[in-house]
């Protein structure tokens, strides 16, 4: 048995141009259906969602940054895990990935209430694809039914495939190059990096140590494994609690 991994991600906000390629790649990889007509930004399903964040100032002082938010894979006191009444959420000790079993989920949405990052999504509608488009579904991921909660699992299908490949080759460890989540692979700017945080030689582990690195709501104490970084002071402030003033004029 190899040493346990602690998979995590580092996100360079100064590189993210908010193009949304990660969101598209994620939806394609994980068989997330297109939104029904009535869906909006509060009822959509986007395992990774790029938020447009600003410095709360008006034109021309306004500055914008794009912040991709996915499941933060909390490593301590994981809020969603211990609230689920029927063990549909768990942390894989081997990878540190917070898993969601949609086939076990009752749809009570308690985990969504528990998650401070709003990284969990409920299937408000039956999943529907335009006629013929179901042919483009990824065979490695089962589509979910209406009425269950789902979220990012660092592309579990890909991890599984990498494991199978390693097993077929008689190796105990997977090759790091074989396991990269779809969003990281798709990011055209190289803002997203993925790897084992417990291995100090990986890029992500080094990114996490940088002085401009931060995590969202670190003080809550859930030890998230997504490390953001920015050289802009105002961007690093998004890590902390909300500030009520100057919230007018937000889009959407």
């Amino acid at each position: 048995m190899s040493a346990n991994k602690r998979y995590g991600m580092s996100i360079d906000i100064d590189k993210c141009n908010g193009c949304g390629a990660c969101m598209m790649a994620c939806a394609v990889e994980n068989n997330i259906p297109p939104a029904p007509e009535a869906a909006n930004d509060r009822r959509g399903v986007t395992w990774i969602r790029v938020y447009k964040v600003d410095n709360h100032l008006a034109y021309p002082e306004r500055r914008t940054a794009f912040v991709p938010v996915l499941c933060q894979q909390c490593g301590h006191d994981t809020p969603c895990v211990h609230v689920c009444p029927q063990q549909a959420v768990d942390v894989d000790p081997e990878t540190g990935i917070v898993g969601q079993m949609p086939e076990r989920c009752l749809g009570c949405r308690y985990c969504m209430v528990a998650c401070p990052y709003h990284a969990r999504y409920f299937n408000w509608w039956d999943p529907k694809w335009p006629a013929g488009m179901e042919k483009t579904l990824n065979p490695d991921v089962a589509p979910r039914m209406r009425g269950v909660v789902e979220k990012c699992n660092f592309c579990h299908g890909r991890w599984h495939a990498a494991q199978q490949k390693a097993a077929a080759a008689g190796q105990r460890e997977i090759d790091a190059a074989d396991y990269v989540p779809a969003c990281v692979e798709a990011c055209p700017t190289g803002a997203l990096r993925f790897g084992d945080l417990s291995d100090s030689s990986t890029e992500v582990a080094q990114d996490a140590q940088r002085p401009e690195s931060f995590r969202l709501l670190e003080k809550i104490g859930t030890e998230p494994k997504i490390h953001y970084r920015s050289r802009r002071d105002w961007v690093r402030e998004i890590a902390s609690a909300p500030r009520p003033e100057g919230k007018d004029g937000l889009r959407g």
Binding site: V83, C84, Q87, G107, Y110, F122, N123, G147, V148, V149
Partner: peptide
């Protein structure tokens, strides 16, 4: 709940740490 037919899962796979259980 989204899947009422699965209500009994709570009794079958109870998570003893959950207040909801």
């Amino acid at each position: 709940v989204g899947q009422p037919l699965r209500s009994w899962f709570t009794f079958w796979y109870p998570n003893v740490h959950s207040m909801l259980t």
